[in-house]
Design a protein around this nucleic acid. Structure first.
Length: 659
RNA sequence: UGGGGAUUAGUGUAACGGUAGCACGACUGACUCUGGAUCAGUUAGUCCAGGUUCGAAUCCUGGAUCCCCAGCCA
């Protein structure tokens, strides 16, 4: 999605995918007079996920590239499934992603949002017209009977006994349906097309059903509600959408989409002369393949059940592929946009490796996230020859990728926390970190040489000892000697205890539907070698939850972070050096003192590189000399929670894993 | 012969009758005050069988496999 913040040169915003080729062709032939108007039409019955992000980036991106317009429209034709909570989350998510819809304003989140339900009146008029043209009829058949008469994939259907009612009777009945005279399910308005059509969607599809329910937008104004097929094309038509882009499963619906609009246009003229008036706009529906991602599920139904059955903590759980979940996890909108740009658009059903998303997240955060030192699994390191009460505030670089990010001070003292895995009493080959006799660098501080360790009764290492070389202050040896390893650390006396939440894939398998192991076992139990897919009523789909990763969330409390993050705003993103990217979760207390910083709510505008403002806050300036006693920063108390967005690449972990 | 759609390295995506390329992943190596980042390199592909052509991923014929459709959901 091109925005002023993106760094793509004009023209290389996206590849020439098949949709852009179609649009180019339309522009060549003048089909829409050079206009490009797109829309994103979610049904407010769930939270948006990264698959929707693909669609949003596509639709908004096309409008932006071709100098067209982009609408955000709630496709709210079913009052029984739709809720205000979903409406609000959808609007917030689209905004956060960075799409700008027609009529969007910053002071009113709902400004410019369109509603399919606002067109119900016009659609009703067209339904009347369909009846008058002999193209629609009121059918009294209950749902099961309609289903029976529809036929099968290979056998034609049979006509409803009500198919040949007179226009007058149909008009009367439909009006009485609207008046609320009939209970739910007793009557429908159906299109009169072809009960033997090879495309099942064309076998007299239902246009309206009776639902006595309060609609979130229209209240109790209606008790007949249009079906998707009847409504969607008209919503597009009314808004002047040129390219109605949807997913592959709607390909079978395109003939109906076109049929309904052509039906209305039957008898109409370009100049409006004649009994029916002027022709209505006919958009082009184009279908593309929805996004699938490894190690996760994407359907609304499944996401809903994860929430309802409490496998996750909510729609915005950082393990969810929802936009809200990704945002809370710390994924920046720029990364999502870049991801959507890279995966492209095609008609091939595919599953994208989640590693690509993670790559895009790292790529962006590497450029903008301030660095900080944090110890997740602490081990005490005592520098025996360092003065007991001495504290030095050392200079640390905020972001080596961005010199403008400046530096900060970090406190160094005699007793530190280092990472437990950064010490080994007996090092394996290629291990360059701390072990007895080995010298390493403490980042921005000193070279230290390990002298030994202390163990508890069970033989666990509980404390490591070392001596430092005072000539290496800042991290460079004047004699030019090298060390193989640089380690992060935190001063025990100054460390900020925080909660850290480590996330892993939600599922243990790339394809959560892959229950082959279980199926084989079940087959063996049943004594049948072929009992796999049919083993359960729903097939493998019923068992996908058996692949949930029991270790998808690991909570560390406390972990210890350098004091500079004390006043980090909610949502601020950091790199914990050598660990990964982390962001301040909204479960944290508000910052102790925030000079106009956004105190609550999700990270605000797209791309605001949250976080840097916090660096340095609470650190005594120029206090480089020894300062006995606790520094000022420890005076404040704040409960901080960090989410790990994504790990850094870790080649050592790879080496270890291979052993 | 129900209809519709799709098949290019492990994954995603280009090439539109003329050298099968890019990205991610994996693997080497260089460099490094993050075993990060960066840089260099390696790996590996046109679903199958015929045909047309000087030349086919691309055109033709036949086949295979996968996905979607029998909601008064969208």
């Amino acid at each position: 999605m091109p925005t002023p913040n993106d760094q793509h040169a004009p023209g290389e915003t996206a590849a020439r995918d098949f949709i852009r080729e179609i649009i180019d062709e339309h522009n060549r032939t003048g089909r829409f007079g050079g206009r490009v108007c797109t829309r994103f039409p979610p049904e407010p019955n769930g939270y948006l996920h990264i698959g929707h992000a693909k669609s949003i980036c596509l639709n908004y991106g096309l409008a932006a590239e071709y100098g067209g317009t982009f609408n955000l429209r709630m496709d709210d034709t079913n009052p029984e499934k739709e809720e205000q909570e979903y409406v609000d989350s959808i609007i917030a998510d689209v905004r956060w992603l960075g799409a700008r819809w027609v009529g969007m304003r910053d002071d009113d989140p709902h400004a410019g949002v369109l509603w399919g339900s606002d067109y119900f009146g016009q659609m009703y008029e067209w339904a009347l017209e369909a009846i008058k043209k002999g193209r629609a009829y009121v059918c009294d058949l209950p749902a099961e009977e309609v289903s029976k008469l529809r036929g099968t994939l290979t056998a034609p259907g049979r006509p409803s006994p009500y198919r040949d009612r007179s226009v007058a009777e149909n008009l009367d009945l439909f009006e009485r349906m609207r008046q609320g005279e009939f209970p739910d399910g007793t009557k429908t308005l159906r299109a009169k097309i072809d009960m033997a059509h090879p495309n099942l969607n064309m076998r007299d599809p239902v246009m309206y059903r009776i639902i006595h329910a309060t609609h979130h937008n229209t209240g109790d104004q209606w008790c007949v509600y249009p079906m998707y097929d009847w409504a969607h094309g008209f919503e597009d038509s009314i808004e002047g959408i040129t390219h109605s882009i949807c997913t592959l499963e709607f390909e079978n619906h395109r003939p109906l989409y076109d049929w309904f609009i052509d039906m209305v246009n039957e008898g109409r003229t370009d100049d409006g002369s004649g009994p029916w008036g002027k022709k209505i706009h006919h958009p082009q529906q184009i279908e593309f393949a929805r996004l699938n991602l490894t190690y996760t599920v994407m359907s609304k139904r499944r996401l809903l059940s994860l929430v309802k059955e409490a496998h996750v903590r909510g729609w915005d759980d950082p393990r969810m592929p929802t936009i809200a979940g990704l945002r809370r996890r710390g994924v920046p909108p720029e990364a999502i946009r870049e991801f959507c740009r890279r995966i492209g658009v095609s008609k091939v059903e595919s599953t994208v490796d989640i590693a690509l998303l993670e790559h895009c997240v790292r790529e962006h955060l590497n450029k903008v996230a301030p660095r900080v030192m944090g110890v997740l699994r602490p081990l005490k390191l005592v520098i025996d020859n360092y003065p007991e009460d001495q504290v030095e505030w050392l200079d640390a670089i905020n972001n080596p990728e961005d010199p403008a990010a400046g530096t900060r001070k970090v406190p160094f003292s005699r007793v530190l926390y280092i990472e437990h895995e950064d010490f080994r009493e007996t090092p394996p080959p290629k291990y360059w970190r701390l072990y007895p006799g080995n010298e390493v660098r403490l980042r921005y501080a000193y070279f230290v040489k390990c002298t030994g360790c202390v163990k508890d009764a069970a033989g666990n290492v509980v404390e490591v000892h070392a001596t430092y070389d005072s000539a290496t202050r800042g991290g460079d040896a004047p004699d030019g000697r090298k060390v193989k390893s640089t380690m992060h650390w935190v001063s025990v006396a100054h460390a900020l205890p925080v909660e850290v939440r480590l996330y892993d894939h939600l599922f243990t398998k790339p394809d959560p539907d892959d229950v082959s192991d279980d199926a084989l076992r079940a087959a063996a139990d049943a004594g049948s070698p072929l009992a796999s897919r049919e083993a359960s009523a729903e097939g493998p789909a019923a068992d996908w939850k058996s692949n949930l990763n029991p270790h998808s969330l690991e909570v560390i409390n406390p972990a210890y972070v350098e004091p500079s993050v004390l006043n980090a705003p909610l949502g601020a993103r950091y790199q914990f050096e050598r660990h990964g990217y982390f962001c301040v979760d909204e479960d944290s207390d508000a910052p102790l003192s925030e000079p106009g910083a956004p105190a609550t709510g999700p990270v605000t505008a797209a791309g605001s590189p949250a976080g840097l403002g916090a660096a340095g806050v609470g650190v005594p300036p120029d206090n480089v000399a020894s300062t006995p006693g606790p520094p000022a920063v420890v005076g404040g108390r704040r409960s901080l929670v960090f989410n790990r967005t994504v790990t850094l690449k870790d080649t050592w972990a790879k080496i270890e894993k291979k052993r």
